[in-house]
Design a protein around this nucleic acid. Sequence first.
RNA 1: GGUCCGAUAGCUCAGUCGGUAGAGCAAAUGGCUUUUAACCAUUGGGUCGAAGGUUCGAGUCCUUCUCGGAUCACCA
Length: 585
Amino acid sequence: MAFAPIVEVVKEIKAHIETLNEGERPNPELKESLNLKLKAFGNVRVSGRLAVPPRVMGKAAFVHLSDGKNRLQIYVRKQDAHVISNDNLQPIEDENAAWDVFKLLDHGDFIGAEGFLFLTNTGELSVHVETLQFLSKSLLPMPDKLHGIADPELRRRFRYADLIASSLQVEHEGLTTREVFERRAKLISGMRRFLDDAGYIEVETPMLTPKATGAAATPFETHHKALAIPLYARIAPELYLKRLTVGGFEKVYELNRNFRNEGLSHKHNPEFTMLEFYCAYMDVNGMMDFAEAMLKESVNKATGGSLAVNYDGKEIDFSKFERISMKEAIAKYWQFGSFEDEEIGGESLDDFEKSLQVAGFVWRMWAIYSDGLNHLRATNASPEAIEVKKSELNNQYKENAWKNGKSNAFHLINLPPDFNLNNLTTLQKENIKAKMITYVFEEIVESQIINPTFIIDYPKSISPLSKASPENPNIAERFELFINGMEVANGFSELNDPQEQFERFVDQVKEREGGDAEAMVLDEDYIRALAYGMPPAAGIGIGIDRLVMLLTNKHSIRDVILFPHMRPEKKEGEKAGEGESETES
RNA sequence: GGUCCGAUAGCUCAGUCGGUAGAGCAAAUGGCUUUUAACCAUUGGGUCGAAGGUUCGAGUCCUUCUCGGAUCACCA
């Protein structure tokens, strides 16, 4: 069937319709002449799901067929239609058979139809059915055609029904569920293409690993029966990918799932998709340049040609990437301007004692600040009132908070207030300071970042896999990319010195023994791999789900994962309180 | 785990001051040969999330619980 000429004919009527006032019908003569042209194209065969209940008018009916994305109207007239028997695939002789079959159809059933194209009185392209065939039945009722499925839980739990609903729904705000996942697919294919074109090789590394390394997280644990050993679902592919750079894959990437046994939230799902890639002979700055270029191009592809997306009423502009150090960001985004700025920003965080005080101060201020402001917001206070409250809080608490800063800081790292500072080793002090700076950063800065921003100059002690800066041994050559308050990517110059990597692991093990469940475990085989020599390299991990959230204006990660983790479904009858639920926890 | 909001027909939701349980859509039946959220008529459909309490009387007020959502905390 020649498709392009049909599109031309339809264009003509559409152009005509645009000149009409509301409710006015197209010119009958024009419609008839176009219908002659359409009929000349011959018959078309279409199939799909009944997207709406059939609109039956005595001896004729209209109904839309859906292919899951688009819909096409068909017109069935009793006297014109024949039906194909599913027993022998021959037309049924009885002239009422087609109409009898058609009247049995329900919203959601699948049919095939053959007939000629025409334009209706309102100018809609339709198929005038001459032959129809029943294909399959929908036993359950279709989701509401107006509202779709409103309950977010049911949408996620019954994603198949949600997808049907999003294709049937007459009105909807924002992207349909299907469009969300199409956009996700475009983003991912855009990233793959960008990396492939740049000479990267895609690999698959183990999902089940003897050690959960490469990130700081609690793993899922399972058991290998034949070997009688524990195995862990991977929390990151990082160390395997870097083993591959040792093996000569100079540019390598993996785009796949990671698993972390942690709490669920609007931005955490137990399994999530991460793109990690590594490039030999590149450093952290080169990686930021490359990642920025890749994100711009793949976002552009995903959105169909735009770098600015609307998120929750805010505009996020992917054409503007900033780079700023962690300490500069803290000074920049500190909102209590009347406090001595020099104490909060920059240099004070380099001093151990002061970093404790600053962190404790921020903890105190932020707690009071958010309590006070939430209270005001709850009472619908004016912006002016909020400003007044802010400076009031500032004056009221800054002295006490500052004095109490140090003991507050102990609270943050779970140390008793009478802990003896003099017993701390230099390393411990460095670790505590790093945690304090990171804490202050997270409290003050994170939520205020909207446009893509690379935060650079991370403390070394919380970056056990990244290379230290040649200028400052306490700083790592590392960045994280924040967008709209969310951490989206994390990258660094890879530490490739086996001796230093071993020592860093040992430090992590000490942290772990000291009660930090987040610290990494030692991976001896990885040290051995490094001992064969790893080229200098930079690497990055990009959280795909979170990026998709930003590009689709979704506030929950579960809305960008087709089948997100859900609580097990309750069985029928459990709610009645009958049956054997004694063993339930 | 804290706080707030919610749960009423298959779906989306009303339900006033505590006084007989409602609408639209969906379903079923009948009518209608260019409709499109088709239309018109008729019919069926409910342990008001669960349990307890106050009351002459509870969908409505109180307590506890279950489930869900938002948010905070936790968590790269």
